[in-house]
Design a protein around this nucleic acid. Structure first.
Lengths: 350, 350
DNA sequence: CTGTTAGCGCTTTCAG
DNA sequence: CTGAAAGCGCTAACAG
């Protein structure tokens, strides 16, 4: 079942069928109808690889995420994807639609590079890299190199939630500012002994949030001990749990714990409860991201809201070239403090 | 940068380079090395569309999910994808690797069909359909038709978590059995007035779980009222919240609420708390799926565990033809009751 | 507005 | 074991 078959049935040339299907060229209404009917009758579906080869571009858009099981990435990826299908009508066989494909790197630099190669091989129309980047120098150079190679071969490269690189449009997240305001909130409540559960050391997101926290602590003259009250782990629940136990070991008199994200914060809460400590009466807890479950946690989690859906949608539009690039190719996504019940003034008795 | 460039540099024919790269044909070790070096020096990356066209197959594997922001699907999709990259070595440019791409249908039948067409157009190597199917007759017929067309053109079709169809290998989930055991657990605790918050009416998952629940109620002679104490909504938190308010309106003396999944259960808990009801003292709550956050909820949520990661991984292997098909093309994934703190005997005073 | 004519870059018989 | 040659199905000038 090929274009030629359709052409024969519609009694036109293959070129005409191609023009009807891609819709980017004037075709007489009568012929167009005839072609469309033939397409229907034959249940013809364009051969993607063939057209990608001939046109030297494909309709694939790759979305790289660090962990698709984490709603943080699920929300962003879903939003990117929702921008692609907007015009998807009922008629099958037609094309012009982009196929956004989500690739799960698991946070591994090698897999990230591998997917980039895979997408380059597919001649993807665009690539969206989401979430914190790994800061290892070699890897950063490798990614930057791949990105410019992609860009120079016509693939649009969009970054969402990581630092800018050349040849890419970037949406950075206000991790530093948000983290800083969050810790300031705790400071304002009167906390002085604040533990921090950070993510993996080499991630940019981890570093930015930690810097924001430290900036707030420094400004309050609390450099001392801040270092000692920081524990690194993964961006998951069990790391939060373990880190909390470790923090408690280091300082029994802690009155607050800030987690690098909401998922970690969940683990922090679990550990605190298992230790017989009440939230926020004994220890205040705060997270970051404001994932859907955070507002429902008990007590509701104080956190920093990042408009993930909007950011993902915008990244998708940027990837399609449907939105003008921000000045300088970089735009920052603002974050917002969500003060809820998991944070309160420290107990006077402590 | 094409095969021909590499061939010229390695002083061999294009055919030889192709053979080295696909590795499915004997080539002298010395030439192979020469070719590989040329590939490296030129940073050559195979043109996917071109090779897909020539070979009439691509290395794309599509994974359709109803809602990628929901960890239920994130976990399955991540697991499918993790089976693909297993052999991904460091060398770029090489191929043979599959690219698993996740497509988010948002639960819309049209988008599901559209993605199927898109994947058919890409001549995908396999397609994995996950999660409950929409039971509208027309749509089921359309999906079945698409599936057999895909199958007949060499695309493997795998179903994960939905009822079997012809031309597809299927992994069904034990939704009915799990739901039944869950309600039995509540019955055993002494509950009689049990509310049920179901998912969207037309989903197979919704129906199966509801049937399991009703079967348990019937067996206990509790048909009466079961119908009245069932409310349908979406598989999300706010539906659970609203449904709970509605249930309470219908029967103030409810002692337990079963939710069609954990996310809904979260909303149920929130509503109950907002109404000043304690869990499980006043009302017991149960969910389904055992997502990661469920064990951490307060109180820990009683639910039915589905081995999502294993199921997804198996679906991935099936899609790659790396695992023998189960007898009859259908295998059932067992579920397991996880009795936790959110369920307890009803208050004697009620 | 429509047809003709070349390829796009790779795979794969078929010879050697 | 390697090369030559014939497409895979579609698109994009270029005429008409």
């Amino acid at each position: 079942m090929t274009l030629a078959d359709v052409a024969a049935r519609a009694r036109v040339s293959a070129a005409t069928v191609s023009r009807v299907l891609s819709g980017n060229y004037p075709v007489a209404e009568s012929t167009r109808a005839r072609v469309l009917r033939a397409v229907d009758e034959l249940e013809y579906v364009v051969n993607g690889p063939a057209s990608a080869l001939a046109a030297a571009t494909s309709d694939l858009v790759g979305v790289l995420v660090n962990d698709i099981a984490d709603p943080f990435f699920g929300i962003i990826a879903g939003a990117v994807q929702s921008e692609m299908g907007s015009a998807m009508g009922a008629e099958s066989g037609r094309h012009g639609e982009k196929l956004a494909v989500i690739c799960n790197t698991g946070g591994s630099p090698e897999r990230e590079l591998n997917y980039l190669t895979l997408l380059q091989r597919q001649r993807a129309a665009a690539v969206v890299l989401t979430g914190g980047a790994v800061e290892h120098p070699d890897h950063m150079a490798a990614v930057a190199a791949k990105a410019s190679r992609l860009a120079s071969s016509g693939t649009r490269v969009v970054l969402c939630g990581r630092p800018p690189i050349e040849d890419a449009v970037t949406l950075t997240f206000d991790n530093r500012g948000g983290a800083r305001r969050l810790t300031e909130h705790l400071l304002t409540l009167g906390h002085r002994r604040i533990g921090y559960v950070a993510g993996p050391a080499e991630r940019t997101t981890t570093r930015d949030r930690l810097e924001g926290h430290r900036a707030a602590m420094s400004a309050a003259g609390l450099d001392e001990g801040t270092q000692r009250l920081t524990v690194h782990g993964l961006y998951d629940r069990s790391s939060g749990y373990d880190a909390t136990l470790e923090l408690l070991r280091r300082d029994q008199a802690l009155t607050a714990i800030v987690a690098a994200n909401d998922t970690i914060a969940l683990g922090v809460c679990a550990a605190l409860r298992d230790q017989g400590l009440r939230i926020p009466d004994d220890v205040s807890v705060a997270g970051f991201d404001d994932l859907p479950f955070s507002a429902d946690a008990v007590p509701a989690l104080t956190t920093v809201r990042l408009p993930l859906h909007e950011a993902g949608a915008r990244a998708g539009r940027l990837a399609l070239g449907r939105e003008p690039q921000p000045p300088g190719g970089v735009a920052m996504v603002r974050s917002e403090l969500m003060a809820r019940a998991s944070t309160a003034p420290p107990r006077a008795t402590k």
